[in-house]
Every structure is written in C-alpha cells, then in structure tokens.
Design a protein around this nucleic acid. Structure first.
Lengths: 217, 217
DNA sequence: GTCTATAATTGGATAGAC
DNA sequence: GTCTATCCAATTATAGAC
C-alpha cells in the first residue's frame, strides 16, 4: 500500500516538476503536454489521468509555485530600534525574493496569461505582493510604536518602501536587461531606498535649507 | 499610381490594425493569422505578402505600438518654481500613461513574450520607461538648479519619484485587480507620492522630532 | 498583389488493452 | 493507473491561378 502510494506520489510529483520547468521556461502556449509527459518519464495518458486538462495542470503548477516561493518572507525578528539597519535587511530580503530568476519567470508567466486565466491575478497577488506588504507593514507599525519612524499610515509607508526598493530593478529584470547579477548594485539600491525613506520618515532632525529664489512682486 | 499606393498602404494598415487588436487582446500564442487576415478583410496570402512570418508581424506591431504610445510624454513646460504643483501634474501624467488599458495590455504582452523575443525588452525599455525617466530627470535637474529641490543625482531622484508614483497601482492593474477606474484614488496616490518625495527632497524646513527611546548603557 | 485551396505539422485529448 | 496508438481540430505557411 505504501509502495503504491509512494509510486503514485512520485509520478504526480514528476509530472508537476516537469510541468513547472516547461511552463516557466516556455510559457503556457509553447509548453506542450507531449514534452511535459516525455520529460516526466510517463505517457501523455498518465498525465491526463492526474490532471483533467492542460489548464488544470497549469493552474496547479502556478498556484503551488506562488505559495512555495513567497511563504518564507518575514520581517518578524527585525528590531524597530535601529530602523536604518532593519530596513536595509528588509529591503535586501525583498529584492532577493523578487529578483530571483524563478520569481522573474513566474512573474512573466502570470502577467502574460492573466487575461486568459483571470484567477491567477488574485492567487499571485495574495501569495506574493500582499504577503510581503503585510510583513513590511507590521514592521512599520512596530517602528512607529517604538518612536523610531514617523510614517503615518503603516500600510501606505510599506507600499512606499517596497516601491523605492524595487525602483526600476524589477522591470529591468523582467525585460531581460542586466541579467548579470551585480552584487554591488543591489546593496547600493537598497541603501538608496533606505536613505530616502529615512529622509522622509526617519527620526533625524534636519537642517533648514535655503529658501527658493522668488520673483520680485 | 497614387491609387495603387494608397490601396497598398490601406491594406498594410488594415493588417497592422487587425494584428494589433488580435495580439493585444489574445497574446502572441492565441492570436491566429487566420483571424488577423479575416479581421483585416484580406486573405492570409496577402498578409504573408506583406510580412514574412507571424513573428515579423508581431515585432512590427509591438515596436510601432511602443513608439506611438510613449512618444508624447513630456515634462518640458513644467515650471520648477513650484515643485509641488509640477510634480503633481507630472505624476498624474505618468500614471495616466502607464495605467491606460492599452499600456497595460502592451506591458502584459511584452513581459509574457520577452523570453521568446528578447529584443522586445530593449525596444520597450527605450521607447517607454527610459524615455519617461529622461523627461522626469530633466525636470529634477531644472528644479535643482532653481534651488527648489535638493535631490542629489537627478537620475536617481527621477527613478525614485516614478517608483513612488507607480506604487502598487501598476502591478494591480497588470494583475487585473481593480480594473474599475477610481478617479479619486489616482489623485490621492499622486498626492501621497509628491508628499513623501518633498519630505525627502523638498525645500521646507522641518521641525525636529522626538528622539527615539534608547536603552540605558 | 491578391485570391482559393491545400499541404504539413503540431498539439490537446481519448480509446482500448493490460 | 499506465501504456500505445490514434483521432481531430487548429494553425502556419505556401502553390498556383489571375
């Protein structure tokens, strides 16, 4: 019995793995059930014994991948006492997550297919961006309570921080530009995002700036 | 002769228009040359007389659409004397451009197909985001010269402002969430982006904030 | 250049034996 | 559940007449 269940599970896993590779590499349209079956080492009929259609297999792959990829993101242990440091760690974690080649591939697929499978939009949003934002928001709230950040609504601040950290990096990766990973550039981007965020909401007092020149009345 | 040229141009235009509608609505994979020819009112052979392949037609459509859509964006006439006002106009213009249904559809297609047609990444980047950023950067430079903004490198500031204005709005549209256009929300998003940008780089003097509580040594 | 008709291939899905 | 073999629809691309 266990042997049987194990064998079944193995085949299903193999199919899902092969499907994941095919879909992420080639997109829904170009991935073929033939190729998936071949790569999984089973016949096409077996694939259809486990998944009623190509669309269902696709949905299972994408939903699983969304859940798996974004589950680990957390800001719980970051201390609000030193916002500069914690935000830098948080920003770096965020970028590592959304810029990974797998996340980029997943992102591309979902955006490319969301008009055909509208439910993917919800699934992805809730599993990915929304979860990230909730974590960041929780940190903002703690920092505000601790008196180390002054950012008004934590949710809005979380979106602003995420937007600053992302900058144009994510879009450039999605477009296939600068696939080469420049470690220094990532650190620099995070540092810049933290700097501007703290200029706006940080605790430091700032010196007055020269008043703008005015036309005479 | 003119009749002939006009007729030829008309057919080519009709093909391009039909192809644009098909590709933007259904994506590359699901759009068929049959449907495009039918919708353009010509035979499939005529389509192939003008464009050697489906890929070539797709490339022509996308490149043309990128150029056409983003060409008008400009910040040249915005005055740097009143950064709050000008940034609000600029941000609103930016959002109107990138959130339009046509831009969203174009974005989806390109991200979905860029792994198959890598050149699309460059074409889109240069025609769209890069052009927008150059306009914004030019404004930042002028405002900095005028002494109304203090933002360091204008290019970085431009990316930050664009990121703040975009926030999560663009992603949510791309994912098909909140397709309903809420006019108020747009204005609010722009106002928030301008506010945080000016908190970081604006000319206003700011009051000191209470120092964070510290642990005793 | 344009059309009709068709070739050639591909890919999703299934029948039937085991 | 799994396999082999096959059906059927759709699609890209082209041949040949005008």
């Amino acid at each position: 019995m266990e042997e049987t269940r194990s064998a079944l599970a193995k085949k299903e896993t193999a199919i899902l793995e092969a499907a994941k590779r095919s879909f992420l590499a080639r997109g829904y349209g170009e991935a073929s059930m033939d190729a998936i079956a071949r790569e999984a080492g089973v016949s096409k009929a077996t694939v259809y014994a486990h998944f009623a259609s190509k669309e269902e297999l696709f949905g299972a792959v994408i939903a699983g991948e969304c859940e798996r990829r974004f589950a680990a993101f957390s800001a719980r242990e970051l201390s609000p006492a030193e916002p500069a440091l914690s935000l830098a760690v948080l920003g770096r974690r965020f970028l590592d997550l959304i810029l990974s080649p797998e996340a980029i591939a997943l992102h591309r697929i979902i955006l490319g297919e969301v008009s055909r499978f509208p439910v993917l939009g919800d699934v992805f949003w809730r599993a990915g961006p929304e979860r990230n934002l909730l974590q960041i928001e929780a940190f903002m709230k703690r920092a505000q309570s601790a008196g180390t950040l002054f950012c008004g609504e934590p949710r809005r601040a979380a979106e602003e921080f995420a937007a600053l950290a992302r900058g144009e990096l994510q879009l450039r990766r999605l477009l296939g530009l600068e696939s080469g990973i420049e470690e220094g550039a990532l650190e620099e981007a995070v540092a810049a995002a933290v700097a501007v965020f703290l200029r706006a909401y940080g605790p430091q007092e700032r010196v007055a700036r020269p008043a703008p020149r005015r036309q005479r009345a």
